[in-house]
């Protein structure tokens, strides 16, 4: 297995096929690191020539901008764009829908134009191109529900690619009542992840956890590190953490392929 940085590629005078943007959660959060590793295992198995930025990567600035701090957003974003443009990066894949959205939709106005793809769409295209094969055995007949993250779903209109991956796993997809355009937020977006809730009746992730439990699914497929944290917390609060597993789609693929 090889995990090279852009700097290493450059020193060899080579360019990777794609840059894997890891993001803060994927880099530092213990739970999200597992998703990062799972995704890298799949890239490796599919023989994708990818690179990471390593220490040259910074927060995209999504939470700062949504909290209203445009200064901090501009500082981190312009720094990232300098790095990305220096390496002449064209294609970026990321396992975080917030990074995906900011890189794709907000960096162009600042001078950063890249072809950005979320890892669920990327994995689906690898599957269609035959570079990735999934043997469904591990999930055959298992009930899986899918949680649309706001920034992949409603904001960027990607609903089908992740569902096609679930279909490829041979799992039985049980939709929640609030799915696709009506999907319910996990409660983390808009920089909520970094602060206490305002007073209310309950936390948003509990509301979503209850909906997940009502589907009878034993696995929740997600596509966002923050959703995974929020939904896992919700399961714990409902004392269901042993019964219902919250996983990123790449982790499910790793399980199915026994990587």
């Amino acid at each position: 297995m090889k995990i090279n940085t852009m700097a290493e590629y450059q020193s060899e005078g080579k360019k990777p096929e794609v840059l894997f943007w890891v993001g803060c959660a994927g880099s530092f959060d213990a739970r999200a690191q597992k998703v990062t590793k799972a995704f890298v295992k799949i890239l490796n198995a599919a023989g994708i020539d990818f690179a990471i930025l390593g220490n040259e990567e910074s927060c995209t600035g999504d939470p700062a901008r949504r909290a209203g701090n445009e200064f901090v957003f501009q500082m981190t974003a312009l720094q990232n764009i300098e790095v990305l443009n220096m390496y002449e990066v064209k294609d970026i894949v990321t396992a975080c829908p917030h990074c995906f959205n900011t890189l794709k939709n907000e960096y162009p106005a600042l001078g950063g134009n890249y072809n950005v793809i979320h890892h669920t769409s990327y994995l689906n295209s690898l599957l269609k191109d035959g570079r990735l094969t999934i043997e469904g055995g591990a999930f055959k007949g298992k009930k899986v529900t899918y949680h649309d993250s706001c920034y992949l779903g409603r904001v960027n209109g990607i609903y089908e690619a992740p569902r096609e991956l679930i279909a490829a796993l041979d799992a039985e997809l049980v939709e929640m009542k609030r799915c696709k355009t009506n999907g319910l937020c996990c409660g983390a977006g808009g920089a909520q992840m970094f602060k206490e809730d305002e007073p209310g009746d309950k936390r948003i992730n509990i509301e979503r956890a209850e909906e997940i439990i009502s589907t009878g699914a034993k696995v929740v497929a997600a596509n966002c590190p923050f959703c995974i944290t929020m939904l896992s917390d919700g399961m714990k609060a409902k004392d269901k953490q042993e019964d219902i597993m919250v996983h990123d789609l790449s982790e499910l693929i790793v399980q199915a392929k026994n990587l």
Binding site: I3, T5, V22, C24, A25, G26, S27, F28, D29, Q33, T36, K37, I52, G54, N55, E57, S58, C59, G61, P63, A64, A67, N69, V72, M75, T76, Q79, A191, F194, K195
Partner: peptide, 24 residues
């Protein structure tokens, strides 16, 4: 939100973490 802002400003990450970004 303040720790998040200062952390992004100072360490380029939403959390102040002493580890390298590619420790994983």
């Amino acid at each position: 939100w303040l720790p998040m802002f200062t952390s992004i400003e100072n360490s380029g990450s939403v959390w102040q973490v002493p580890e390298d970004r590619d420790k994983w």
